[in-house]
Computed example of a mutant assay.
Amino acid sequence: MASTRRRLFGLDRSGPKPRQTRRGEPLRPLTIPNLVGYARLAGIPVFLYLALRSGDGRTAAAFILFLAISAADYLDGLLARVTSQNSRMGALLDPVVDRLTILAGIVVTWKFELLPRWALAVLAVREMVTLVLAQLALRRGVDLEINWVGRWSVWLTMGGIFLALALDSWIGTGMFLVGLVGSLLASALYLKTGLAEARRD
């Protein structure tokens, strides 16, 4: 029972990926979790509009929307597990929306200097390189599974950006920098896994 709850809430990711998310399976775009993913994607330009037209990047509407987009990253996965609506589309869509959410946050925090620009530049390069490499891996038939370092780093990075949008505090900067270090480590692990998979093929 305890292990079932851990799997349901995403705390236990051991074992093989759901069959529906694997390479070669139908996309199944119209599922409840994917609708959440589409809503997240649609919210990104709205967030940019609200934040960039403000005087300092800190408007209630913008940071609440950023929080909703970020929190829904967990919601769509939970819904997929609860409803058993895992899909290939969801597996492809979720990491792309995560990257775009973080890049949108970088644009706003860079413009208004809410976080250290050197750190934002490093993360922006990392996110764009990750998007490109993920596409190349897919074309070569290599699926890169999200590791726990990458998962926690996404949450820390999004949390740091959210706090920077909400208030002027060292806590947001600290959280963001920890997330940045984790993201770079996760990238190294993804690269190692990808090279191993490519050699195996």
Rank of each mutant, 00 (worst) to 15 (best):
G24P: 00
G10N: 08
L177T: 05
D94N: 03
R126F: 13
S187T: 15
P33E: 09
I32Q: 10
A60T: 15
L67P: 04
V97F: 01
R139V: 06
G141I: 08
I102P: 02
D201Y: 14
P116S: 06
T83M: 13
S84G: 05
R58P: 02
S84C: 04
A60F: 14
G77L: 07
D56G: 08
W170M: 14
A166P: 02
V36L: 04
A71P: 04
R126I: 11
L138D: 13
G57Q: 01
R88E: 08
V132E: 10
G55L: 07
R139Q: 14
V129L: 14
R140L: 12
G172M: 00
G182L: 11
I161Y: 03
Y38F: 13
A72N: 06
A121L: 15
V154T: 10
M89E: 09
L115T: 01
A121I: 12
T101H: 01
I102Q: 11
A188C: 09
A42W: 10
R58E: 01
L189M: 15
G150I: 08
M175C: 09
L195C: 10
A62I: 01
S14N: 09
P26K: 10
G172N: 07
P16S: 09
Q20Y: 05
L131E: 04
A61S: 15
T31L: 05
L35I: 12
L189E: 15
G43A: 08
W148K: 11
I64R: 13
G37C: 01
R140H: 14
E127Y: 04
L114N: 11
F9R: 06
I146G: 10
S183V: 00
T193Q: 15
G37Y: 03
P18D: 04
S187R: 11
R126T: 13
V97A: 00
A124D: 09
W170D: 14
V108A: 05
A62G: 08
N34Q: 10
N86P: 00
D143P: 00
I146E: 14
R99C: 00
G105M: 03
D143R: 07
A91W: 05
R19V: 15
F162N: 05
T130Y: 00
T4W: 13
Y38A: 13
L165N: 02
R13I: 11
F162I: 02
T173F: 00
L189D: 12
G90D: 02
L115M: 11
R151E: 09
S14F: 01
G159A: 07
R22V: 05
L50C: 02
V122E: 09
A51V: 00
G172H: 00
F66S: 06
Y49F: 14
S183G: 03
Q20C: 02
L30R: 12
T109Y: 04
